[in-house]
């Protein structure tokens, strides 16, 4: 069982008629995701270009389609509301792609979700038992690759020939770069879980692994915002408990201490090989590097501190982003000459 999503996960899109919502709904469909409908208030009863039903509310969409997951593409001002609407409708996995959500909105939303989870599970249940899981915002989403059918681009630019019949992509990542463990391209027989704060850097990591014959069990982009849903640590815990994940590649960046917390967790609890990379080794202090959360300040959140914490935890850290895949291979004990 891969992590959080699989081939049978039914997904809706909130903001399906917006420019990005429409493009990536198509992209996910073409990948092979069971996208079963969308929500745009006021357009209920119509359908989109792919023939998917559109609903006015998430509740209607969830009731009619049986969806358990959502990807959110609504504009930033409405994203917090959209997340809460999804939780209210009982959707278990909420993936918010939207960039630029106000931090104060996320503080409130995250507190509300935490309260709902606490109420649902009681205080002493393991946090992986959460009723609602939020990914993002400001993230590429989550993908559990499936075996390639030999058709389709996985990107949504060509005709609808599903790239896979047994995978699930919720988000904006290019599907074709991912490799399933059963694909011939997976020459190592290993599948790794990948977690990252960055979108495109995740693709880079996935691509390098695929090129080296390392498949991916599930890849999660947790997003670049300071207040968000899943953390690195949450994802490591999921991967550690997933029998189909043979190793973990963790990609962090400057700012905050998520990576340090995750490194401590690796040291104390993770039995699988872990490799990592930290972006921003050359970022000047005090400058915000694009992501809201990516800033070094007052000596906090530097790449070197994160790398030191990761190395101390036994994580194989790649110095260069061009070698993330190789670091993963080393951590897995693979003979690099053979790949």
């Amino acid at each position: 069982m891969p992590v959080l999503v699989n081939a049978s996960t039914k997904v809706i899109c909130q903001g399906i008629t917006g420019a990005f919502g429409a493009v990536h709904t198509r992209g996910c469909l073409h990948y092979g995701t069971k996208l079963v409908g969308g929500v745009t208030p006021g357009k209920g009863g119509t359908s989109d270009d792919n023939g998917l039903p559109i609903f006015d509310t998430v509740k209607q969409a969830a009731d009619a389609t049986g969806a358990t997951a959502t990807m959110i593409f609504v504009p930033p001002a409405f994203a917090g509301d959209a997340i809460l609407e999804a939780a209210d409708a009982g959707l278990r996995l909420i993936c918010c792609i939207t960039e630029g959500v106000p931090v104060h909105d996320m503080v409130r939303v995250r507190a509300a979700l935490d309260a709902m989870n606490l109420a649902a599970r009681g205080a002493d249940v393991h946090p992986t038992q959460n009723l609602f899981t939020l990914i993002g915002p400001n993230c590429p989403g989550i993908i559990t690759p499936g075996p390639h059918t030999g058709k389709g681009t996985g990107g949504g630019t060509g005709p609808k020939d599903p790239f896979t019949n047994a995978g699930c992509k919720i988000g904006i990542m290019p599907g074709y770069i991912h490799t399933h463990i059963s694909d011939p391209a997976c020459t190592t027989g290993k599948a790794v879980g990948i977690v990252s704060r960055s979108g495109t850097l995740t693709y880079e990591a996935v691509w390098q692994c695929s090129q080296l014959g390392i498949a991916q069990s599930t890849c999660i982009g947790i997003g670049g915002d300071p207040v968000r849903g899943l953390s690195h640590l949450d994802c490591l815990r999921l991967f550690e408990n997933d029998p189909d994940t043979h190793g973990i590649l963790m990609i962090g960046e400057i700012g905050g201490s998520d990576e340090e917390d995750a490194a401590r967790y690796v040291r104390d609890h993770v039995t699988k090989p872990v490799a990592g990379f930290i972006a921003g080794q050359t970022a000047p202090p005090g400058k915000r590097m694009g992501h809201a959360g990516a800033i070094i300040s007052g000596g906090e959140g530097t790449a070197s501190a994160k790398i030191a914490a990761m190395e101390a935890a036994g994580i194989t850290v790649s110095k260069s982003p061009a070698d993330m895949g190789k670091a993963m291979a080393r951590a897995l004990g693979l003979e690099l000459a053979a790949v």
Binding site: E204, M289, G290
Partner: peptide, 28 residues
């Protein structure tokens, strides 16, 4: 494109002995 990749690109340039003139993320 992308803040993380932009930072990583700067890092790679530095590792190859170059120096970046800017950070530029064109976004999505």
């Amino acid at each position: 494109n992308g803040a993380g990749l932009a930072m990583a690109t700067m890092d790679t340039i530095a590792l190859e002995g170059g120096t970046p003139a800017n950070f530029l993320d064109v976004g999505g």
